[in-house]
Design a protein around this nucleic acid. Structure first.
Length: 790
DNA sequence: GCTTAGGTTTGG
């Protein structure tokens, strides 16, 4: 097996076995004894790799001795070397013109071309296991900055010498059939790996380079992670050891033995970060330059058609597009279809199809809030893609290729009773097959497109914070209003409201100019009656994280509870740790035959907890703390009742988990459970800021204490119930139709309570909408009517 | 043991 040794720097080094003896090239003759001899020179010519059939190659090269005696003519210090077999291939891939070469294990023959090329009358022939080459890459070319593997081959263990590091890359236009080559190129088309009828996965690519030749490339590999990580057209690809092949009259590339691949982002100016699963790939400055050259070249070629990546906000019905998004939840629909709930932070102008699935089949966050805001796209993936989607975890970032936006999308059997008006709703289908690159994959969290996406998604979190800070400014609204308004109070203008000042109740006739938050789910808050703080409802990703965290505690908790441990079957991947679900029931309750009325659950995911909660009346997720049962962090719900979740105040709760339970409790509901556990129960509330206007000016007013009667919903319901959410949305759409001018908005009779807030020693007037039911408010139906002036 | 696929949709 011929192996080439690389050594940095010029001149012979200690790596060449010392017992070898060098022969000056001019002294070589067909009668020379070549055993234990070496010849050394610089590569002045490197011929093409010529294929002589399967795995048999020939390559001719010329080296010139540089330190020959001066009286020797250059002709006689240059000699042809003929390389055979695998050595020829290795040489072709590893050695460049101007490299320094030392060969051993050769035979000397007569050069048939001596007359013509005026070189040495002899040539050197290298073949078989005895032939060896040592290469010192030229110092003229840029060098790899990564540390090279410098295995010093001990004389006894020469065969363990390091493989050569340098590769040569063939322009696509120069490819000849039947050779193994290395290429660098730009990806102009690709399919994500798909299962073949054979043993491997297959990636199909089309690539091109500065030679403008377009070449198809088929990659077979049984390991998915060894397939090229291509995220979009325009990515750069480096292929090592691919075989050229004539197919349909054109050259194509196919994986061959020892194949490897690295890919790079194709964006000009972005960092050159190799994407590979291989731990031993070689990558240096030269690669950076090649990548950057390809990027620059490609940027001026319009190789990539119109940007296939489209945000939800720009999706046109009936089109195919690529979607970059975050997976919120998924649910199997049937054996050939899986539902993925995704979002990209942009709002689709078309109403999105809501695919209803049984809550207990949904993995991940329910994201009702985002559904409500028309932010969640329901993607149905079919057939071959189901297997791929099965590996995805909610929270991960995906790109879905060639997604079909289908208006009035198909009705799923389970969806018949859901939305009656389907015609306007956009559904998304990833059809089966791989035509047009249809497929999907996870994108790494640090890839540029995902960093962009994360920034967008984070603005949602930011606006949550802004909502909270908005109410710090407004201070905690007063709990109750002494004055009541039955709208018999004299109606005044907003200008008068401002001039009269607090404390007072006013009756006004106004239009809605604007409101916050625009994303209505953000108006849902948790309120503590004791400390008066308002907090946001955590999203399911956050809560899911707390559950995962709690699962890490595998210790027992034995404080007098009756325990039922349920080992769970391992989930793929098989190396995932095994888990146990533990149900703990109060012995006290058990004595009264009421043990099922309150169940503590340990080791479950959020999803499992929700599922179990649908079957039992009160589920309290717990974990163990030094052998004692304890509640999860109070950022997570402490109680699940059906589809409802209840939270406790971190500040005001004084937990007494594990103490006696159920003395005097007749009915277990959220209040009695909270009492028994020492939890200060938080109330759900709706909080909005409305900007009101009439002919005399505008004024900002909070909607908080009476928000539930304003919308005719219970805030608690809006946390778990789509219908309640829709009602809030409908009310706001009626008062402030999207895209409407202020003249088109209805007039409302409102009751405003003015009160004083002290902040940093400064007093200012604040206003809150009270005693107003938007149903009984009877908004004016004449949009252009002017409010009566009083 | 040494194939598999070989870009091109329209549907659930």
């Amino acid at each position: 097996m011929p192996v080439l040794v690389v050594k940095d720097g010029p001149g012979p080094g200690t790596q060449v076995p010392a017992q070898l003896q060098r022969i000056p090239i001019p002294l070589l003759s067909p009668t020379s004894d070549c055993t234990g001899k070496t010849v050394k020179g610089r590569v002045v010519h490197k011929g093409p790799l010529v294929s002589m059939g399967e795995d048999n190659y020939v390559l001719k090269t010329v080296i010139q001795e540089e330190d020959s005696q001066q009286n020797m003519s250059p002709e006689h210090s240059s000699i042809n070397i003929i390389l055979f077999g695998a050595l020829a291939k290795d040489y072709s891939e590893s050695v460049s013109q101007a490299d320094m070469l030392l060969v051993t294990g050769f035979t000397v023959g007569n050069s048939p071309t001596a007359q013509k090329d005026k070189l040495h009358a002899c040539n050197l022939q290298l073949a078989g296991d005895d032939a060896w080459m040592y290469v010192w890459p030229s110092t003229v070319r840029p060098r790899a900055s990564v540390p090279r593997k410098r295995t010093s081959p001990a004389s006894t263990e020469v065969t363990r010498a390091a493989k050569v590091v340098k590769y040569t890359y063939v322009p696509l236009s120069d490819l000849k059939p039947g050779v193994v080559v290395n290429v660098y190129a730009v990806v102009t088309f690709f399919k994500q790996p798909f299962r073949t009828k054979g043993t491997d996965y297959c990636s199909t690519l089309k690539i091109t380079d500065q030679s403008n030749k377009k070449v198809g490339c088929t990659i077979f590999c049984d390991k998915l992670e060894e397939h090229p990580k291509i995220f979009k057209m325009g990515d750069i690809i480096r292929l090592h050891r691919v075989k050229t092949q004539l197919f349909n009259g054109a050259i194509s590339l196919l994986t061959s033995h020892g194949f490897s691949v690295v890919t790079f982002d194709g964006t000009v100016g972005s960092p050159v970060v190799p994407r590979t699963s291989s731990g031993s790939f070689k990558f240096g400055e030269e690669d950076c330059q090649v990548v950057e050259a390809l990027r620059t070249w490609a940027a001026n070629q319009s190789l990539v058609p119109a940007e296939p990546c489209v945000p939800l906000s720009a999706v046109q019905p009936k089109t195919y597009f690529d979607l970059t998004c975050q997976l919120l939840a998924k649910a199997p629909v049937d054996s050939s279809c899986t539902l993925l709930k995704v979002w990209d932070g942009s709002k689709c102008p078309h109403p999105l199809l809501d695919v209803f699935v049984e809550p207990n089949t949904l993995e991940g966050s329910r994201m009702l809030s985002k559904d409500m805001a028309n932010l969640t796209a329901n993607v149905l993936v079919y057939d071959n893609h189901v297997e791929v989607a099965r590996q995805f975890k909610p929270g991960s970032y995906l790109r879905i290729y060639n997604l079909h936006a289908v208006p009035g999308a198909s009705r799923l059997p389970s969806n018949d009773s859901g939305q009656s008006d389907q015609t306007e709703h956009l559904g998304f289908h990833l059809h089966g097959g791989t035509s047009y690159g249809r497929g999907l994959r996870v994108l790494p969290e640090d890839s540029p497109d995902i960093l962009d996406l994360k920034r967008i998604l984070e603005t949602f979190a930011d606006s949550d914070i802004n909502d909270s800070s908005m109410f710090e400014v407004w201070s905690t609204p007063p709990e109750s209003f002494e004055r009541t308004c039955d709208h018999t109070v004299e109606q005044v203008s907003l200008a008068e409201v401002k001039s009269r000042g607090p404390p007072q109740v006013f009756h006004v006739q106004v239009q809605l100019k604007s409101y916050q938050p625009q994303r209505l789910y953000q108006s849902l808050k948790l309120f503590c009656h004791k400390c008066k703080t308002i907090r946001d409802v955590p999203d399911d990703v956050t809560v899911g994280g707390l559950f995962s965290e709690a699962q890490k505690d595998v210790g027992p908790c034995n404080n007098g509870y009756w325990t039922l441990a349920l080992p769970l079957p391992r989930e793929p991947p098989s190396e995932s740790p095994s888990r146990t679900l533990t149900l703990l029931m109060s012995s006290q309750l058990m004595g009264k035959g009421k043990e099922k009325e309150l169940i503590f659950l340990k080791g479950a995911t959020l999803e499992e907890t929700c599922r179990i909660a649908s079957a039992y009346s009160n589920i309290v997720p717990v974990t163990s703390l030094q052998g004692t049962m304890t509640l999860l962090d109070l950022s997570a719900p402490f109680l699940f009742r059906g589809t409802k979740k209840y939270y406790g105040c971190k500040q005001c709760s004084q937990l007494k988990v594990g103490e006696s339970l159920g003395e005097g409790v007749k009915v277990w509901d959220e209040e009695s459970v909270a009492d028994a556990l020492g939890v200060q129960l938080l109330q759900y509330g709706l909080l909005m800021k409305l900007e009101l206007q009439d002919g005399t000016g505008s004024l900002e007013a909070l909607l908080w204490r009476d928000a539930e009667s304003f919308f005719h919903v219970s805030a608690e319901d809006t946390a778990a119930d789509q219908e309640a959410q829709d009602r809030v949305q409908e009310t706001m759409d009626r008062l402030c139709p999207p895209g409407s001018s202020t003249a088109e908005r209805p007039w409302m009779d409102l009751c405003l309570s003015a009160y004083t807030v002290e902040e940093n020693g400064q007093r200012r007037a604040c206003y809150q909408i009270c005693h107003t039911d938007t149903r009984s408010t009877n908004p004016y139906t004449h949009p252009h009517a002017t409010p009566s002036d009083t």
